[in-house]
Structure formats: structure tokens, C-alpha cells
Simulated assay, not measured.
Amino acid sequence: MTVRTKSVRAIEAPAAPVAEPADAKASLLLRKAADGYAFPALESVATQFARSLRDLLRALGAPAIQVERAGSEQTSFGEWSASAAPAIFWRYHAPPLKGPVLLAAARPLILQLVDIFYGGKGKLAGEREELTDAEERFAARLGRDMGLQLASAWRDKLGLEPELDCVTGDPAKLAAVRADDDMLVQRFVLRGAPFEGRTIVCAYPVAALRGVVGAELLPETHSASTADPLWSGALDKALRDVRMPVRSVLARPEISLVKLLALEVGDIIPLTMPRHVPVTVAGRSFAFGSIGEANGNAAIMIDHIEKGPDHD
């Protein structure tokens, strides 16, 4: 009996991946340049941070503002802080970086943002060296918000979670940074009235960046959503422009029916102003605040924001 056999074609196994050099991942964050060190991964971080700053400033009351990246430079901390003064500095503890991340903005920018936040037009009444208590609280809140935006910009790189630990107008109080320390400085320029030409600066100690050379960058993730990105962008923009009714009840006096029926023109109903008043948005409890005045306008300073069932 003859047995016929079929020729079987061998299937070549895919070639084993070539081992990457030990510094392949590191090169994504650190590259030796002719005149020092370059950090290519920070380019995309800066691009994302610029978009986040724009959205944050718009949410604070400047809907037409734009933010441009103005490039990067390496300089000493002493030279940078001197050129930035007078400024407000924010320092963040940001592991795995072995050093702080610093943000800075000109003091007049803070005064303008406070004015807009409380209903003004962002005009400066005059230069002042000292911030009021309300302005200091606003600067701290702004610093926390910018820290969240910076964390978002880093999220697909090293998972930095900057935590604000110092807000000051005196660069000498920024401990852990010496005058001769090299800094990588990224500048972000604001475009549009009333902030035209103002800058926000982000500075990283070069030594801290070099310290994470061996850190593994997080892989890029791709969204599984099949939604049209143009449609999603248009929907997001439309939602951001929705105007919500904000209401606060300053007083709720109660009088008897007899007195109510006896009221005449010129009569006075006494009011007792509470220390804290509720603030509602679209009929839902949103926050509690204190009654006050800002730049000649009646204002409410938010003291506490209510949390929903999901803590958002």
C-alpha cells in the first residue's frame, strides 16, 4: 500500500524582539545634547499643560484667553527667580522626582484674576507688595488647581502627582533649591485682554530630571471609544458654554400674618445677616460662602463646596 504524504511548509516563527539597550526607555525622557541635557518627553507635557492652563483660566472668568508655549531654557534658579520677581511662587513635592516642581506667575496676574473672579474686569487699581487674606487664599487655591493640571499633563509619562506645599512671594523661602541649581524653565504666555503678555512659568531642577533617567515611562494608552472626535469636541465645547443659574439667599425673615397685613410703604423689615449663606446651582445645593465686597461689588467668597454621593 502506497501512502501519499503532503509536503508541509514550515511556518517561520516571528523573530524574537531585539533587546533594547538599557538606556532606551531613559532616552524618552533624557537625551544627551551637544551642550548639556535635553528632555524630549517634556515637550508633550508642556503642550498638554498649556491646554490645561487655558481651560483653567477660562473657567475662572476669562473665556477668550489663549495660552501659548514660549519654548524652554536652562538657567540657574537665582537668575530665573530674580527675573520673575515680583512674583508668586508655588512649590510642589512631586515624587518620583528627587526635587520640587516650581510654578511662578507675576503678582499683578494674581490681582487681576482675583478681580475677575469676584465680578470685576481685571483692571489693576495699583501695585501692592502685600496680598490681602482673600488674595492669599485665592493664590493657594489657584496653586492647587494648577497642580492638578500639571499632574494630568504628566499622567501618561511618569505618573507624577504634584502636591502643593508652599506658596510665597519670596524665592528665598523655596527650600531645597539653591541659587546655583540648574533649572529647566518652560514659559507659557497668556494672550487676550486683560492678561495679554502675562506669563506663567514652570521650572524643574535639572538634577531632579536626571534622577529619573532609569524610570520606566508609562505606555501610551489609546481610548477604546469609537465616537467621532470632532463630534465629541463639539459636544464638549457646547457643554462648557452652558450657563447655569447661580443663586444665594442672603436672608429669610419671618413675620406674623398680622404684621404682614399691616405693612405700608416706608415700613422696614429688619434682617439678620448670617455668617455663611448657601449657594445653589440650578436649584441644587453647591456651596456655602461668606458675604463681602470685592472691588466695589457685592461678592460671596466660597468657604466650602458640597460633595455629591460620588465625591465629585
Rank of each mutant, 00 (worst) to 15 (best):
V201L: 08
A234P: 00
V101M: 11
G169F: 01
L160M: 13
L148Q: 12
R51S: 12
Y204M: 06
S52P: 00
T280L: 10
L57F: 14
G283I: 06
Q74P: 01
R240G: 06
V67Y: 01
G266A: 06
E196M: 06
V279T: 09
Y118N: 01
V45N: 03
A34W: 11
L42K: 03
L97F: 04
N295H: 13
L57K: 03
A179C: 00
F77M: 05
I305L: 13
D312Y: 09
L111G: 04
E216N: 07
M146R: 00
K32R: 15
R58T: 05
G169R: 15
R240L: 08
A299M: 03
V101S: 03
W80I: 03
R178H: 05
L29W: 04
D303H: 12
A46E: 04
D312C: 00
G211W: 03
A227V: 06
G78Q: 04
T5A: 11
K123A: 13
D182M: 14
G143W: 00
G214V: 05
Y92V: 00
L113Y: 02
V167N: 03
L29G: 12
L260E: 11
N295G: 12
H304I: 03
N295S: 09
R284S: 10
E163A: 11
C202Q: 12
D310P: 02
R284H: 14
P309H: 14
L230H: 11
T47D: 14
S44A: 14
F195Q: 01
L142W: 02
A15K: 10
L131S: 02
E254T: 07
V258W: 11
G120N: 06
T168M: 08
I11Q: 11
L257H: 14
V212R: 03
C166T: 13
L56M: 06
V246S: 07
T280E: 15
